[in-house]
Simulated scan of single mutants.
Amino acid sequence: MNAHGAADGHGLFYLMGPSGSGKDSLLRALRERLGPDHRIVIAHRYITREADANEASVALTTDEFRRRQALGCLALDWHSHGLHYGIGIEIEQWLARGLTVIVNGSREYLPQAVARYPKLCAVHVRVRPEVLATRLRQRGRESEEAIARRLARAAQAFTVPAGCRLVEFDNSGALETAAEAFARLVGATSDSATLS
């Protein structure tokens, strides 16, 4: 991909979708196909819970999260389901170096992310409700009541700011299908690449 400037977020892909839609699996599949010549970085998230082995996250206490927030260490941060999430300010250095940067974001926070990075590309991962329900139960993180809340939230519309580029993928079926489309979008295709 071409070199991009950091100020406007050109070169920034903002991945979002309901919990259980397979965002972490898509990121893992992408990470596995990245070679030394790919100028792509997947940013880790800071989160105020223990990080799942399946996700690229760093666990912080709430106090430490707030401290880093106050110190300006976070480029993006939001609160959801009683947890704090953040993306480090280091992404701006990566963008300034002309790298393509992918972050795991939040649909509700998209307007704020676009306000800071007007040229980001929003990537929304959709999944059929019955598939989502099964995945959330298999994860075993939450009660049925919490799962019901997540399913209701997944069905809600979200705000896409005017002028924001939005690309949507359906990840209800085989991971390989969505992973291939995602890799093409961010410029991570190569003849030798393999999907997980």
Rank of each mutant, 00 (worst) to 15 (best):
A3D: 05
Y14L: 09
M16A: 02
G22C: 02
L26W: 01
E32C: 07
R33E: 00
R33A: 05
L34I: 01
G35R: 07
D37M: 08
D37P: 01
R39Y: 03
I42N: 01
H44T: 00
Y46P: 08
I47H: 01
T48Q: 11
A51I: 01
S57R: 08
V58W: 02
A59L: 08
L60R: 04
T62W: 00
D63T: 15
L74E: 11
A75W: 09
W78E: 02
S80G: 02
H84R: 10
G86F: 04
G88C: 14
Q93S: 11
Q93N: 09
L99A: 07
V103Q: 13
E108Q: 15
L110H: 01
P111Q: 06
A115M: 08
R116E: 02
P118N: 04
R128N: 15
T134N: 10
R135Y: 03
R137A: 08
R137S: 02
Q138K: 12
R139F: 14
I147Y: 09
I147H: 10
Q156I: 04
Q156D: 12
A157F: 10
C164E: 06
L166D: 02
E168D: 07
E168S: 12
F169M: 07
S172M: 05
G173L: 09
G173Q: 06
A174L: 15
T177M: 13
E180W: 03
A183I: 00
R184T: 08
S192E: 05
A193F: 00
A193N: 00
L195S: 09
L195V: 01
